[in-house]
Design a protein around this nucleic acid. Structure first.
Length: 265
DNA sequence: CATTCTTCAAGCAG
DNA sequence: TCTGCTTGAAGAAT
């Protein structure tokens, strides 16, 4: 089954289930030994859960207490200014639709984010975004130069299945997804199981992303698995999601390594 | 050169 | 009703 053990540790807890009784998700509690990284301000190491499937490798943890997450969400609701007008629309089949959520992009000076073929300049970091970014770095050892903020005002707001596979992303850097506000279901689906002609039988992997949680999507997850945030009409409260990324500084194609397909621009 | 893959929210079926 | 799978065009990739 799971032939992909990307990380070094191999202990497995019994199968667990996040939201669906028929879905089994392998969870692994990473031991707190070999913690040379815990010295700083994180007096208690983050208890990670490993989520694995064929070609999928994620780590999930509660990064912030409820009190701190409440505070961070409140701050973000005051600080973040979301795109409006043309930037809040998407064109499909020549028809223009409103994006069913709100988006903002922040990052180091000069970085751009491409959505639906349009590049947008990153706004400067805000104090709260910097604070969360640094907390993620302390918990993961990874550094990030960009964050995409998605705000889902209620359960009608959503995001369709996609991969974060852009060429300008550092392919070896995980994408770190911080969730604040209403818990929402999150679904991974293997690319070989999508569409009319399904080639393989691979079960989707479903999670619930909690208030204050951090989900790390490690390589090669975004090569093989789509992810989406489905509509959940019973949810009436907002959720704000931050996906921290590392964008390559030289926009040129990397000469070495992979020959995996990239996405369009 | 032909076939497959890609984008995304809307539409629709169960 | 709500949820989740399929639809649909056309350029890019292989």
């Amino acid at each position: 089954m799971e032939e992909f053990v990307v990380r070094g540790q191999n202990k497995r807890s019994p199968a667990n289930d996040a939201i669906s009784p028929r879905k089994k998700i392998k969870l692994e509690r990473m031991k707190q030994e070999e913690e040379e990284e815990e010295e700083d301000e994180f007096s208690h190491p983050v208890p990670w859960q490993k989520i694995e499937a064929e070609g999928l490798d994620c780590d999930y943890a509660l990064l912030f207490s409820k009190e701190e997450a409440d505070h961070l969400l409140k701050q973000l609701e005051e600080e973040v200014v979301y795109s409006t007008g043309e930037e809040a629309k998407v064109q499909i089949f020549g028809k223009v639709y409103d994006i069913p959520r709100k988006q903002a992009t922040h990052g180091d000076a000069g970085l751009t984010y491409t959505y639906s073929g349009v590049a947008r300049l990153a706004c400067p970091w805000t104090p709260t975004l910097e604070y969360i970014r640094d907390a993620v770095t302390k918990a993961t050892g990874q550094t990030f130069n960009f964050v995409l903020v998605n705000r889902y005002k209620d359960g009608r707001d959503h995001m369709g299945e996609h991969r974060d596979d852009e060429k300008e992303l550092d392919p070896l850097c995980p994408i770190a997804s911080v969730s604040l506000g209403a818990p929402r279901d999150f679904v991974f689906r293997h690319r070989d199981t999508r569409g009319k002609r399904t080639r393989r039988q691979i079960e989707p992997v479903k999670l619930e992303l909690a208030h204050g949680s951090l989900l790390l999507m490690n390589s090669p997850t975004n090569t093989f698995w789509y992810h989406g945030l489905p509509v959940r009409k019973k949810i009436s409260l907002p959720r704000v999601n931050l996906t921290f990324r590392r964008i390559l500084l030289d926009q040129k194609k990397r000469p070495s390594v992979d020959s995996q397909q990239g996405t369009s621009d």
